[in-house]
């Protein structure tokens, strides 16, 4: 009873309400997109997009532009670029790896340009970009994040069926006149936008957890794609809501850590449970 009242009191606080509005929409998007990312073995591409999210935000800050503009421009641009370049980069992953490191190195340059432009003591902007600051969202920012996430979810559900077909059997899908290549490019654009959304929730360095962990667990639980998609979205949303409430109750635990820790624990628990069941059955 007392716990319920204190929970109600907590949710009435605007900072938590904004965080929940943005967090639920963003993590649902991340869970759904992540399912396809893991299914298509494109986790490496999502990693690339997290680097782009960091550098894009700081480039915008250094240039004095709205940071979200740089964030979305960089991630969607890099996502579409990866899609257009195609998947043949896998064999030569050395080049991609060095290019990733360079993108981060560029981001560090923008940190220093931004810091010298604003005077010393501006480590907070880069920390917020790297590790998220969801409790710092204004209600306008939260509504924008939730609204754009909602549009992206609709877009993804619209292409879900042919995309699933193309992910599982590319050759047959192409033979059935499904625009496999076009779908791949659109999907990576959506992954880019998702990376930008998730950066606002858990930060550029941690978004990989929100994309990979729920989807990894969902793929362990079920082979049926649409059930898996729902499980992945549900796990991501659950981790975020629980993480936000835990962090609001215990201020010493930052929200991004709580969210990622719960998502990781859910994945680990699923892995243990499914291996145990398989061993018995």
């Amino acid at each position: 009873m007392i716990a319920a009242i204190s929970l109600l009191h907590l949710i009435s606080q605007p900072f938590l309400r904004n965080a929940l509005i943005a967090g639920i929409a963003i993590s649902l998007l991340a869970g759904l997109v992540g399912y396809f990312v893991v299914l298509r073995a494109q986790v490496f591409a999502a990693d690339a997009l997290s680097h782009a999210a960091f550098t894009g935000t700081l480039a915008a800050l250094a240039a004095g532009v709205e940071p979200r503009f740089g964030l979305f421009a960089a991630t969607i641009g890099v996502g579409i670029a990866i899609g257009l370049l195609g998947n043949h980069g896998r064999a030569d992953d050395v080049v991609i790896g060095i290019a990733f490191a360079w993108v981060l190195g560029l981001g560090v340059l923008f940190i220093s340009l931004y810091a010298t432009g604003r005077g010393a003591g501006n480590g907070t902007a880069s920390t917020a970009t790297l590790f998220g600051s969801i409790f710092g969202l204004s209600s306008g920012q939260a509504q924008f994040a939730a609204g754009s996430a909602f549009v992206l979810i609709l877009l993804l559900l619209g292409i879900a069926r042919p995309l699933l077909f193309a992910s599982i059997d590319e050759a047959v899908a192409a033979a059935r006149d499904i625009p496999v290549r076009f779908l791949g490019v659109v999907f990576l654009g959506v992954v880019g936008a998702t990376a930008a959304e998730a950066t606002q929730a858990v930060g550029a360095l941690l978004l990989l957890g929100l994309i990979a962990a729920p989807a990894g667990a969902a793929l362990l639980i079920t082979d049926r794609p649409f059930v898996g998609l729902a499980v992945s979205g549900g796990l991501a949303t659950g981790s975020t809501v629980l993480g936000l409430l835990v962090s609001a109750q215990i201020p010493r635990v930052p929200p991004s850590f709580a969210i990622i820790a719960i998502a990781t624990a859910a994945y680990m628990f699923t892995w243990l449970a499914t291996t145990w069941c398989r061993r018995r059955g």
Binding site: L39, V43, L206, G209, F257, A261, A263, Y267
Partner: peptide
């Protein structure tokens, strides 16, 4: 499979960074 393996690696990396961030804020 390879896709499941990369989900594990991605999760481990994110959790490691998140834990580092927790220590940093403390």
């Amino acid at each position: 499979s390879r896709s499941a393996e990369s989900a594990v690696v991605g999760t481990v990396q994110a959790f490691a960074l998140a834990f580092g961030f927790l220590c940093y804020t403390w």
